[in-house]
Amino acid sequence: MITTNVWSVEQLPDEKLGPELAAAAAQLRDGGLIAFPTETVYGLGADARSSFAVGRIFSAKGRPSDNPLIVHIANRQQLDELVLPYPQLASALMDSFWPGPLTIVLPARPDVLSPLVTAGLASVGIRIPDHRTALALLELAGCPVAAPSANRSGRPSPTLARHVLEDLDGRIDGVVDDGATGVGLESTVVELVGDQMIRILRPGGITLEALRIAAPHATIDSASLEEPEVAPRSPGMKYTHYAPKGELVLVQGAPDAVTAYIHRQVERAASSGERTGVLAFEERLQGYKADRVLSLGSEAELETAAHRLYAALRAFDEGSVQRIWSESSSEQGIGAALMNRLAKAAGNRVVRV
């Protein structure tokens, strides 16, 4: 078992981050595994050029090896070392959204990144995170950092350092703790088809609507989100992800019908002695009677729901909840990513009433 160090930087001013992060950056350069916060979730970082280091990510997470990794960089100057020439549309998206929660799949320069990062593909997803600690760590490390979410594969992504430790204590070299993450859901992943098409591979912190504003002349395709993937081109496309230990069912329909259905299911499960949970919006929260009822916030503020989702799924585990039902949201804006994560957390157990 590895000793997992924790560097707490939440209370530090920006100018003191460097000295505190120096040891973590050195471990990254030397093949270590370091979890760190981004504006989305906590990532598990390793030097993307080293197959030894990247292989440790797959081992620590129990992650399938055909699932590609996203590479995080500190600035756009690093891009030329990692990728081949790319369309002007990619540059326009970078201008609009970097630093930020947008991953762009670009043609990978041969023999630079570990083949474990690309899962055998000729492309690689890259982003610049919009988080002071992530950027400081990446600058200090001086290397491209492959960083999937810092959780055991299939589990809810971590939005706090303690979530990382719940899954990976003793399996990784360290965690940089800078408090709660912001968005709470992973980055949007896009690939470019020709010069004027953006294909969304994974919805996330950058919405479809924001992409349309940034690239008004481009066609935006999200049909690939429904396609079964034999060789996933992006994280989050093939496998069940984000799941609590209890069985989760996502319920869709008119609010009154959804509420009535969940009531019946909770009563039935409780009569069988099962511990029950409900994930609901504030507008209907008080009407549910389960062992654990958790709020996503107001359905008029889906950014709050996105921020709370993974912590709520982990809270059901802490309460040993066996059966969970979740209300659904609109799929406008960040709601598309929220519903995507809920469906995957439910293993696509979706009931329409």
Score class of each variant (00 low, 15 high):
Asn348Gly: 10
Thr240Asp: 14
Ile73Asn: 00
Ala74Ser: 11
Leu121Cys: 03
Leu93Val: 02
Ile73Gly: 05
Gly170Leu: 12
Gly62Phe: 13
Ser123Trp: 10
Gly31Tyr: 05
Ala35Asp: 06
Arg202Cys: 01
Ser51Leu: 00
Gln265Arg: 15
Leu106Tyr: 01
Val6Cys: 15
Arg132His: 03
His307Pro: 05
Leu296Glu: 08
Arg268Gln: 14
Gly142Glu: 08
Ile324Tyr: 01
Leu160Thr: 13
Met197Cys: 14
Val183Cys: 06
Ala141Ser: 13
Ser114Tyr: 01
Met339Trp: 00
Val164Thr: 04
Ser328Ala: 09
Arg284Glu: 14
Asp80Gly: 15
Glu331Ile: 07
Glu301Ile: 13
Leu79Cys: 05
Met339Asn: 07
Arg349Phe: 04
Trp98Tyr: 00
Ile172Tyr: 00
Pro144Thr: 07
Ala136Asp: 04
Leu342Ala: 13
Thr207Tyr: 02
Ala53Cys: 06
Thr3Met: 14
Arg212Met: 09
Ala25Cys: 07
Ala269Val: 01
Asp195Asn: 12
Ile73Lys: 00
Glu226Lys: 10
Val105Ala: 07
Ile213Lys: 09
Thr181Tyr: 04
Gly335Tyr: 05
Arg284Leu: 11
Ser329Leu: 13
Thr40His: 07
Pro235Val: 00
Ala180Arg: 14
Ala280Lys: 04
Val105Arg: 02
Arg56Asn: 01
Leu294Pro: 04
Ala210Lys: 03
Val54Pro: 04
Leu279Thr: 12
Gly174Val: 06
Asp177Ile: 08
Ala92Trp: 07
Asp291Phe: 04
Ala345Phe: 11
Gly154Pro: 12
Thr159Glu: 02
Gln27His: 13
Ala300His: 15
Gly204Cys: 05
Asp66Val: 01
Leu84Pro: 09
Glu247Leu: 13
Glu166Ile: 15
Ala90Ser: 10
Tyr261Ala: 14
Tyr42Val: 09
Ala24Gly: 12
Cys143Met: 15
Leu138His: 06
Val251Pro: 08
